[in-house]
Simulated scan of single mutants.
Amino acid sequence: MSRRSTNRQRAESEGRGAERWAAWWLRFHGWRIIGQRVRVAAGEVDIIAKRRGIIAFVEVKRRKSAADLDHAIDSYRLRRVVAAANMLAPHYARNREDIRVDVILLAPRRLPRHLVNVTI
Results as ranks from 00 to 15, higher is better:
residue 2 S to D: 01
residue 2 S to L: 01
residue 5 S to D: 07
residue 6 T to D: 10
residue 12 E to P: 00
residue 13 S to M: 05
residue 13 S to I: 02
residue 14 E to K: 09
residue 16 R to C: 00
residue 18 A to T: 07
residue 18 A to N: 07
residue 21 W to F: 13
residue 24 W to Q: 01
residue 25 W to M: 06
residue 27 R to W: 00
residue 27 R to A: 00
residue 30 G to C: 05
residue 31 W to L: 04
residue 32 R to E: 14
residue 38 V to Y: 08
residue 38 V to S: 06
residue 42 A to R: 08
residue 43 G to Q: 02
residue 43 G to A: 01
residue 45 V to I: 12
residue 47 I to M: 02
residue 48 I to F: 08
residue 48 I to M: 08
residue 49 A to Y: 03
residue 49 A to M: 04
residue 49 A to Q: 03
residue 50 K to E: 13
residue 51 R to N: 07
residue 51 R to G: 00
residue 52 R to Y: 00
residue 53 G to Q: 06
residue 56 A to C: 00
residue 58 V to W: 02
residue 59 E to A: 09
residue 59 E to L: 08
residue 62 R to N: 14
residue 64 K to A: 15
residue 65 S to R: 15
residue 71 H to L: 14
residue 71 H to V: 14
residue 72 A to N: 05
residue 74 D to K: 09
residue 75 S to A: 13
residue 77 R to Y: 07
residue 82 V to R: 11
residue 84 A to M: 04
residue 84 A to L: 05
residue 86 N to H: 13
residue 86 N to V: 07
residue 86 N to G: 11
residue 88 L to F: 11
residue 88 L to A: 08
residue 95 N to I: 13
residue 96 R to G: 14
residue 100 R to G: 04
residue 101 V to W: 06
residue 104 I to R: 03
residue 104 I to Q: 04
residue 105 L to S: 09
residue 107 A to F: 14
residue 109 R to D: 15
residue 110 R to F: 08
residue 110 R to N: 12
residue 112 P to F: 05
residue 115 L to Y: 09
residue 115 L to M: 14
residue 115 L to S: 06
residue 117 N to L: 00
residue 118 V to W: 13
residue 119 T to Q: 13
residue 119 T to R: 14
